[in-house]
Design a protein around this nucleic acid. Sequence first.
RNA 1: GCUCCCGUAGUUCAACGGAUAGAAUAUCUCCCUCCGAAGGAGGUGGUACAGGUUCAAUUCCUGUCGGGAGCACCA
Length: 577
Amino acid sequence: MKVVFPRQYVSGLISGAIQALAHQTKDPSLLRVVFDVDYKEGDKFGDYASNAAFGVAKIMEIPPLQAAEKLKAIIEAEIAENIERIEIAGGGFLNFFFRKDYFAKNLDLLSKLSPKNYADPERKKIIIEYSSPNVAKPMHIGHLRNTVLGNALANLYKFIGYKVVRWNHLGDWGTQFGKLIVAYKKWGHKEKVEKNPIEELLNLYVRFHKELEHNSNLEKEGQEEFKKLENGDKENKNLLAWFLKESLKEFNRLYKLLGIKKFDKEIGESYYSPLIPKLIEELDKNKLLEKSEGALIVRLDAFKLPPALIQKTDGSTLYMTREVASLKYRVKKLNPSKILYVVGNEQSLHFEQLFAIARLLGIKPDIGEHIKYELVLGPDGKKFSTREGNIITAQEIISQAIEESQKIVEEKRKDLSTKEKNEIAREIGINSLKYYMLKDGRMTPIVFNAQAMLSLNGNSAPYLNYAYARFSSILSKAGRIGKGDAYSLENQELNLIKKVLAFDDALIKSKQNSSLHSLADYLFELATQANRFYESTPILTDAMEKRKDSRLQLIKGICRIMEMGFEIMGIQTLPKI
RNA sequence: GCUCCCGUAGUUCAACGGAUAGAAUAUCUCCCUCCGAAGGAGGUGGUACAGGUUCAAUUCCUGUCGGGAGCACCA
């Protein structure tokens, strides 16, 4: 089923008009005009509006109003069958008013919409790296934002037809593990760790940093143990393998609880360790390496960046070294068109350096993109620190979220069994948490505030879930829906159809800025409009049979869009809550 | 000191360089003998400051002020 959405339709009309104009004036530079086509709420500025005339005006060096007149004349002459009229307003905007029956005509199409209708023609292969927890440490609230965002971005690309590789870059290497090994050898007990792996290992790590304050020798001991690890020391390698195994169990438990899709690749940093010597050799051959204070660095002056440290004085590697190796590995192995790194904003410099080195090594330029997001800060507005042990774990947040929704469910759904109530509380709690992480842009720092985070009113998952539950309840009561008469629908209903047909807009915006908040906004607006409709208009109880069927079709279409939206956001669709 | 991110209603956030800057929350009213009141209707309230770029600036540039993060052997 091929569908042309209104935005594409208008866009086509304008492109055609610009082409005709370019032909008329023999000025091909007109073809380079970029313009927007925007969905408009209500009908003040039409159903869709465009600023195309401003771009045309600039190139033709005429006033925008004149350019708008020219475009309008061409489009009108082409007999646009679905457009009732075009108005020029606001100094040169073209406002397109669709015929009322255009929306009615599209009604029975709504419930049949599928991802295919939204497929991006590019369909590229893309690696998305996210989550990336550290072995032997609990996932904390920051990982939660990262994981939920990365998972949803991956869903989005998958939805529009990309080949997506979900990549979990596990932190299982580096000096920190030397430190952990020191701590374990000094103070650790096997039984204790077996019983409570992550917690006990974190305790050891925190203790290490406490003791470090009055025993500066520890720092060196940690570096030595890591050095041994890099040189293949058996005892240390076994310890690390054990830590990794226990950690993965815990991570996977959390992913499952959160409804995070399975990763395609889960590769620890340690994996790249054997690839390092060749990498250093290659860097050296390209004359990129330089010795400085006993360490090896790559100068990045040409990029106006500080030098990147590749090898420590004692010959062991660094985060950056392994990142370069990993990048090369990914390109060689999978040949993606792009690698999205969903990593915190505080690592901006690191990624600028990484991509600069990739360039120097002749890797396809701009392959990497850092999808940065702001930190989740503590209640005091300061950064959480693992070393000091003042973190809020992902598990704590999840439990709180579930508890909070449990209270509401107990109050609102006394009719359900305890089992059903628990089930719903868990689903709603997790949905709320995920939605909260996605509803804002990436670059606003989230100051941790349990109250706000777990609020179940307003622009939140429960609002969406509730609306969906009401509508699907109607649909299940209705049973089979008849043919209906779409032309009996009125303004409010037609506007809803228009809104449903604007789903593509939300997807495009979300993809453009690699953020799900545009989609969240759209879904919230759709639900709000639909709720308003629901409150003001009888649907199931409509006396006119044909109109009833049409209204039901509309509700079905709304549900369809909500289902697809939820799927992308990684939120569970619940037929009842 | 240098670099990056961010300053929008009391609060939390939207607005590809576009038209009258939108929501949520809080607060104050109203609505369940009709399909789920976790809902709906209405009121109040805002672009840190100073310049510049242009048909048009919350958005871009420069500077000031304020908050956060990063800057060589951590990741």
